[in-house]
Amino acid sequence: MSSRETAKVRCVAAVPCWVSLMARDLEVPTAFYGPLLGWKFEPAPDRFGPYVHAVVGDEAVAGLGVTGSGWGMPVAWTSYFGTESADAAADAVRERGATLAVGPLAFDAGRVVLAADPAGAVFGIWEGLPGRARRLELPGAPVWIELRTPDPFAAALFYGEVFRWDGRDPERFEVRWEHDRVVLRTEGYSVAALAKEQSGGPAGMPPHWEVFFSVPDADAALAQAEALGGSVIGPAFDSPYGRVARLQDPEGGRFAVISLKN
């Protein structure tokens, strides 16, 4: 991240604090997500290949990069959890029978790890400049992530041990059961959930973290995504947190948009 954006995008221990898309051709997602989510793009350090930041107002809300030619990775969004120590978190991943794919690696904004939990869901770990959790009440910002997995309780135990959820300040940090999900809350609002795959979910998908971006109107975003060359995974529906549409970008990256309840 550039020095201007690094000051705004802070690593918050134990909670999701960044999302990044690895695409095949950077021009394709920028042409799609720019008009859909109101993003502008700014160049970012490209030590590992072309990379830009998606910006709403003056806030960097996501990163978009290009997969290495030899990686063979699918186009996908990755959610990153903050940590005080990438090394300690990586050790905890190994000790609990999960997979380390990349890192820890040093880059401009700190140190990063890519891993997969025991069920195979990919996630990132980021050790960076510390900050306090806050929710960006901006259209186009990521406002929610949700793990779709066969056993959310086993997953909650795994992530809870890796990120020490039980040892955090209960005044600022809470894990609870609501709306048939294990929900992670910080600073008084929900930031993530772990849910069993349900009817209406993306059929045939392996366990994965789903990223939700805020939009004023999920139904309008669904129609716009199709016009921009994306595809619709299913009809828009009402969830306990707002109206949701699940979409796929032109290169196959899956994500969701949500019109949050007031």
Results as ranks from 00 to 15, higher is better:
Val112Thr: 07
Val93Arg: 11
Asp91Cys: 03
Gly124Trp: 01
Leu105Gly: 09
Val113Gln: 05
Leu105Phe: 09
Gly131Asn: 07
Phe123Met: 07
Ala88Trp: 01
Ile125Met: 07
Val112Met: 12
Glu95Ser: 06
Ala119Gln: 15
Gly124Pro: 08
Ala89Val: 01
Arg96Gly: 04
Gly97Gln: 05
Gly128Thr: 03
Arg96Trp: 07
Phe123Cys: 11
Asp117His: 10
Gly97Tyr: 02
Ala106Gln: 15
Val93His: 05
Leu129Asp: 15
Ala101Glu: 15
Ala101Tyr: 15
Arg94Glu: 07
Arg96Phe: 07
Gly128Ile: 00
Gly131Leu: 08
Gly110Asp: 04
Val122Gln: 12
Ile125Cys: 11
Gly103Trp: 00
Arg94Met: 04
Gly97Cys: 05
Leu114Phe: 12
Leu114Glu: 10
Phe123Trp: 10
Asp117Phe: 06
Gly131Arg: 01
Arg132Leu: 14
Val112Gln: 12
Leu114Arg: 04
Phe123Asp: 13
Asp108Ile: 03
Leu129Ser: 13
Gly97Lys: 03
Arg111Leu: 03
Ala98Phe: 11
Glu95Arg: 14
Glu127Pro: 02
Gly131Phe: 05
Gly103Leu: 00
Phe107Asp: 03
Pro118Ile: 14
Pro130Ser: 12
Glu127Val: 00
Gly97His: 06
Asp108Ala: 15
Ala101Leu: 15
Arg94Asn: 02
Ala89Asn: 03
Arg132Asp: 15
Arg132Tyr: 11
Arg94Ala: 05
Ala106Tyr: 06
Leu114Asn: 06
Asp117Val: 05
Arg94Ser: 05
Ala88Val: 14
Ala92Val: 03
Pro130Val: 08
Ala109His: 06
Leu114Tyr: 09
Thr99Asp: 14
Gly103Val: 00
Ala115Pro: 10
Ala88Arg: 11
Gly110Leu: 03
Leu129Val: 14
Gly97Ala: 10
Ala121Asn: 10
Ala90Cys: 13
Arg96Glu: 03
Ala121Arg: 06
Ala119Asp: 15
Phe123Leu: 12
Pro118Ala: 14
Gly128Asp: 01
Val122Asp: 07
Arg96Pro: 02
Ala90Lys: 09
Asp108Ser: 14
Ala116Ile: 04
Ala119Pro: 04
Ala98Met: 05
Ala109Pro: 01
Arg132Val: 13
